[in-house]
Design a protein around this nucleic acid. Structure first.
Length: 108
DNA sequence: GACATGACCCGCG
DNA sequence: CCGCGGGCCATGT
């Protein structure tokens, strides 16, 4: 078994995700831009690996389209349903298509 | 170092 | 609205 530590890039992603205020969400693009990364996908990679499960509220990170995106390696499924519920619990209301109001997006 | 993968984004038709 | 192709970056094999 290999125990790889998070790379600097991942740590930075977790740090940014961790400081997202409750009841708000951010987008991969905003994160990537803030981190200075021109690729949002790399950010998603780090979140998907998310070794700091409850520590890093990855469920508060949504796509640029304000859609839910993915959760635990799935872009659709019951895990996604869980993600939606979590957001509602935090005060984030989704519209009829499982989208998040733009006013709830946290800007860095 | 090359190849393949991915919780993405954008433009085009 | 949907599908297709290209791009951009980090990770794992």
């Amino acid at each position: 078994m290999k125990k790889r530590e998070p790379s600097e890039f991942e740590q930075r992603v977790y740090d940014a995700t961790r400081r997202i205020p409750k009841g708000k969400v951010t987008t991969y693009k905003l994160l990537a831009t803030e981190l200075g990364c021109g690729s949002n996908q790399a950010v998603g990679q780090a979140l998907k690996r998310n070794p700091f499960a409850p520590e890093v509220p990855c469920h508060r990170v949504v796509r640029t389209d304000l859609t839910i995106g993915g959760f635990y390696g799935q872009t659709e499924g019951r895990e996604i349903v869980r993600k939606k519920k979590m957001l509602q619990q935090e005060g984030v209301d989704l519209d009829g298509r499982g989208r998040v109001p733009a006013d709830l997006v946290f800007g860095y």
